[in-house]
């Protein structure tokens, strides 16, 4: 094959290889990186964008690595003793590979803004739960006064708004299955919205270092049916009354 680097055949082969590698990498990436179960409406948007990004990564990876590996094979010195071809650059190419990424950035920023809006905007008819983080436990207060510690029980198919505050240091509210997280900051009230769409038991973990027992600052999250939720709330209220009575 011709050794001249500007030969068209080089570029055709590389283009084919890039396409093949992109497809293979895309499939591999999306296979290797397994996301936790998606249990909220927000999670589906996040996952969708995550998968789109994986394809972008696959393409860019293919682009760079195919050119690189191809150069290793075709342009290795081997037995030749001469120098490389002398060209110092190509302004058109430089402008092109500055402008195209700019366009890509604009597109991805746009998608980012739109999806960000979907996952962070307040849903209608939400149930507002007050969350208080303290070293090292979580307290939840429901609209009707139900209290709960380290156990968050919520009905399925329900819009939730967490109104979060901290007693001492910065904590972070994160249920991996619900994807979106937000810090709990002393002196501020932060909010985060979810729409549950799957029942199950998950872990809600503090995800901002908060001292000695940070690792263990985990609350159980139970997403249950509306009926189960009502029963639980009733039982919880009775327990609370008994506690106040005995005091």
């Amino acid at each position: 094959m011709s050794k001249s680097s500007s030969d068209k055949r080089h570029f055709i082969i590389v283009a084919v290889l890039v396409v093949v590698t992109t497809v293979v990498m895309g499939i591999v990436l999306n296979g290797v990186l397994e996301l936790p179960v998606a249990a909220s409406v927000q999670a589906h948007t996040v996952d969708w964008l995550f998968r789109v990004h994986m394809w972008l990564i696959a393409f860019l990876f293919a682009l760079v690595s195919v050119f690189m590996v191809y150069s290793f094979v075709v342009f290795r010195r081997g037995k030749r003793q001469d120098e490389g071809e002398h060209f110092e650059g190509n302004t058109t190419l430089e402008i092109l590979w500055t402008a195209l990424p700019l366009v890509a950035v604009a597109v991805f920023a746009y998608i980012g803004v739109v999806t960000l809006n979907t996952v962070t905007s307040a849903p209608p008819d939400e149930m507002v739960i007050k969350v208080e983080g303290a070293q090292w436990l979580w307290n939840f207060t429901y609209p009707d006064g139900t209290l709960s510690t380290n156990e968050l029980v919520v009905p399925v198919d329900q819009n939730l708004t967490m109104q979060m505050s901290s007693k001492d240091v910065i904590h972070d509210f994160w249920v991996p299955e619900w994807r979106v997280k937000e810090d709990v900051v002393p002196g501020l009230t932060t909010t985060v919205h979810y729409t549950t769409d799957k029942t199950g038991e998950f872990d809600m973990m503090c995800n901002q270092v908060c001292g000695l027992n940070h690792t263990l600052m985990i609350a159980k999250v139970k997403v249950v049916t509306q009926e189960e939720f009502a029963t639980w709330q009733q039982a919880q209220l009775v327990k609370q009354d008994l506690q106040t009575a005995s005091r």
Binding site: M68, F72, F75, R80, L102, A109
Partner: peptide
């Protein structure tokens, strides 16, 4: 900050592509 952060990709991309351009048509030793 999302937009400004994504912008970092542009000069970084210039570097990557320039490296590829440097290797392309060279006499590589390893």
């Amino acid at each position: 900050f999302m937009i400004s952060t994504l912008l970092v990709a542009v000069p970084t991309g210039v570097k990557f592509f320039s490296w590829l351009g440097t290797m392309w048509g060279g006499r590589l030793t390893f």
